[in-house]
């Protein structure tokens, strides 16, 4: 057989194999991009949207004080943290909220929101040392914001407008709500799409 033909055939094989390899590499890079995309606080697309004004709520907190949320009566920006005594992730985030409360003092109020049996909540509040937080019980509030999963946080500005919201499972996600507000985007997904 002509050596030129042999070498020619071998080169075709090499080019094809390399073509497949380059394609496979590119695909793998694509898969990696999908896997590492930061998800941030996941936003469920229901309830008052970011930018809309939340309906007004006047609630009696466990400590006896009155809490205004939404369209009327708010004095400063407020982070409403929806939680439950039976949710372990919520408990994990309580220390973070305490730190946040200290650093955001005067700028952002942090309100804990839940629903259910008051005695149970009073015991939980005492056990976890949450007396410093306004702690409200209102099924209606949760329904209004369509809270399906806990812990869920909604950041309202002083006029009761929703600035950011989302399911929060970590300190980073909680902080991402404030970042989202600063950047003026609804969520990290929204940010990624806009930038793309």
């Amino acid at each position: 057989m002509d050596p030129l033909v042999v070498s020619h055939a071998a080169l075709w094989v090499a080019v094809l194999v390399l073509g497949v390899a380059v394609l496979a590499l590119a695909r793998q890079v694509g898969v990696l991009h999908e896997r590492v995309a930061p998800m941030g606080a996941l936003v469920m697309d229901s309830g008052p949207k970011v930018g809309e004004t939340a309906p007004a709520f006047t609630l009696k907190a466990l400590g006896g004080e009155t809490v205004h949320l939404g369209a009327e009566g708010m004095r400063r920006a407020t982070l409403v943290f929806f939680m439950s005594p039976t949710c372990p992730v919520c408990r994990k985030l309580l220390p973070v909220l305490k730190t946040m409360r200290a650093s955001e003092r005067g700028r952002t109020e942090i309100v804990l929101a839940s629903d259910g049996d008051m005695t149970e909540h009073l015991a939980y509040r005492q056990k976890q040392g949450l007396e410093e937080f306004p702690y409200v019980l209102s099924t209606e509030l949760g329904m209004t914001f369509r809270i399906g999963k806990l812990p869920y946080a909604v950041l309202l500005d002083a006029h009761g407008t929703v600035r950011a919201k989302g399911l929060v499972n970590s300190r980073e996600q909680l902080e991402s709500l404030f970042t989202a507000d600063e950047l003026g985007v609804a969520s990290i997904q929204d940010y990624l799409q806009k930038a793309g």
Partner: peptide
């Protein structure tokens, strides 16, 4: 023809990757 298709597919995939990379 096969090689051309492979190169096309790889280039397209790299483009998709590049567009994903921008926001990050």
């Amino acid at each position: 023809a096969l090689v051309l298709v492979l190169v096309y597919a790889a280039a397209d995939q790299l483009l998709a990757n590049a567009l994903r990379m921008t926001p990050v």
